[in-house]
Amino acid sequence: MKIEIWSDIACPWCYIGKRRFETALAGFEYKDDVEVEWRSFQLDPTLPDHVEESEADYLSRSKGIPADQVRQMFAQVGAQAAAEGLNYDFDSVKVANSFTAHRFLHLAKSRGVMAEAEEALMSGHFETGRDIGSIDYLAEVGARLGIDPDETRRVLESEEYTDAVEADVAQARMLGANGVPFFVIDRRYGISGAQPAAAFSQALETAWAESQKVTVLADPTNASTDYPEGAVCGPDGCA
């Protein structure tokens, strides 16, 4: 079974959804038969490379949300994150366009460490105030994952993996995703949002059970079939 997860590093609910999904997957009986693939999405492609103001000030100014309402929202999201073992620090968040970081994730994917890179960047962004728009920081993360820093800088100073990021975003749109996190199981089932772990568990069980069934296209015991002549034997004899 294959699960694709569209997310944006700069999305607080994506990190929470990641944890909740991981909790469900850890308790899934057939987890060793599940392939997870991360895919890119951008909530705000128009965001400048860097914004010299706090996350709260930026949201208040750009979205027209009163400052006290932004702070209340941060408190609510932070509490949800804490329940999943995450320590959000919105005061330290560096506001930056995530496109370069998504290109880095595709570089990490080519090295087989995309999931680890996703975790590192989300943690860095929301918990320790690291700059996901900084090539130096991305090279640092890559080095921890075994990617040569010079290779990371060379890739990110070019346009490499731009097409891969744009293709992921286009696929999300094609599948009807207007926001993230967005989980797709075997291209048959979609789960939108940072659902509770129990909801992910139920989805995994349902999708697995359905994947084990065979759709019979020709069956002589079914009067509606287009091919009624095929012979079949069963417990009560042959027909």
Rank of each mutant, 00 (worst) to 15 (best):
S110P: 02
V113T: 03
V113F: 03
V113Q: 01
M114Q: 15
M114T: 08
M114Y: 02
A115S: 15
E116C: 03
E118W: 07
E119F: 09
E119D: 13
L121C: 13
M122S: 04
M122W: 04
H125D: 14
F126Y: 14
E127K: 01
G129Q: 04
R130Y: 06
D131P: 00
D131L: 01
I132A: 07
G133R: 00
S134H: 05
I135K: 04
I135C: 02
I135R: 02
Y137M: 10
L138Y: 05
L138P: 00
L138E: 04
L138K: 05
L138I: 04
L138V: 02
A139H: 02
G142W: 01
A143H: 13
A143D: 15
L145A: 12
L145V: 12
D148L: 06
D148G: 02
P149Y: 08
P149F: 04
D150G: 08
E151S: 06
R153A: 10
V155L: 09
V155W: 01
V155C: 05
V155E: 07
L156A: 10
L156V: 09
L156H: 07
E157G: 07
E157S: 13
E157C: 03
S158C: 14
S158K: 11
S158L: 11
E159W: 07
E159I: 02
E160N: 10
E160F: 01
Y161D: 11
D163T: 15
D163V: 10
A164F: 02
A164R: 07
A164Y: 03
E166C: 01
E166Q: 12
E166M: 12
A167T: 14
A167Y: 03
D168F: 12
D168C: 08
D168T: 08
V169D: 11
V169E: 15
A170G: 11
A170T: 14
R173P: 05
M174Y: 15
M174V: 12
L175Y: 12
L175E: 13
G176P: 09
G176D: 12
A177Q: 05
A177W: 07
N178R: 06
G179P: 06
G179F: 02
G179K: 04
G179V: 07
G179Q: 10
V180T: 15
P181E: 13
P181Q: 13
P181C: 05
P181Y: 09
